[in-house]
């Protein structure tokens, strides 16, 4: 078993690089653009102190901004979902609480819980990101459509990656 610090550092670097080199160029008609990198924030262990969750979300957003010249847009959205993560845990507590699980991933928490969690986090992140990027209300409905479609794309990738990677690992 790999130490959580090493595996999370590796995940941070891998997801950030994947996002800026590959996924920023993947999309269709300006509407679907996946932001898989927030999977890092989703998969931070339950026990991580809020201080570190916020700090890592901030750093992750900052590194994506650095590579895509977006001046703080990703940082704003990432820090926000890093902040609301504990509240979402409280809202969607599974029956029996969070006792023996370490990481909020699909395998340990089960598909319904994980997908609900992912939908909320991804949608809020994308909504903030796209609205800050456009920064005008006259295009609100187009932005909303882009948010919804991109969220679907991101969710699809998150769930796929969870199924592909969690089966090969033995804990």
């Amino acid at each position: 078993m790999i130490s959580p610090i090493i595996s999370n550092t590796f995940r941070f670097l891998f997801l950030a690089l994947l996002q800026v080199v590959v996924l920023n160029n993947v999309g269709l008609f300006n509407l679907f653009n996946p932001y898989l990198y927030i999977l890092f924030i989703l998969l931070l262990p339950f026990e991580t102190a809020p201080f570190f969750v916020l700090l890592f979300s901030f750093l992750l957003g900052l590194s994506i901004d650095t590579f895509s010249s977006t001046d703080g847009m990703h940082t704003i959205a990432c820090t926000f979902i890093g902040f609301i993560r504990p509240m979402i845990f409280l809202i969607i507590t599974p029956r029996g609480g969070y006792e023996h699980q370490i990481t909020p991933n699909l395998k340990s928490m089960g598909a319904p819980w994980f997908i609900t969690y992912a939908i909320i986090m991804v949608f809020i992140h994308h909504l903030i990101l796209f609205n800050i990027e456009v920064f005008r209300l006259s295009e609100f409905f187009i932005t909303l459509a882009r948010t919804a479609l991109s969220s679907l794309f991101t969710l699809l990738l998150i769930i796929l990656s969870q199924y592909l990677l969690s089966n090969s690992k033995k804990r």
């Binding site: 916020l54 700090l55 901030f58 901004d65 703080g72 847009m73 940082t75 704003i76």
Partner: peptide
């Protein structure tokens, strides 16, 4: 604090 930094960057 972090959001203020991010917004000031923006």
């Amino acid at each position: 604090f972090l959001e203020v930094i991010a917004f000031s960057m923006l």
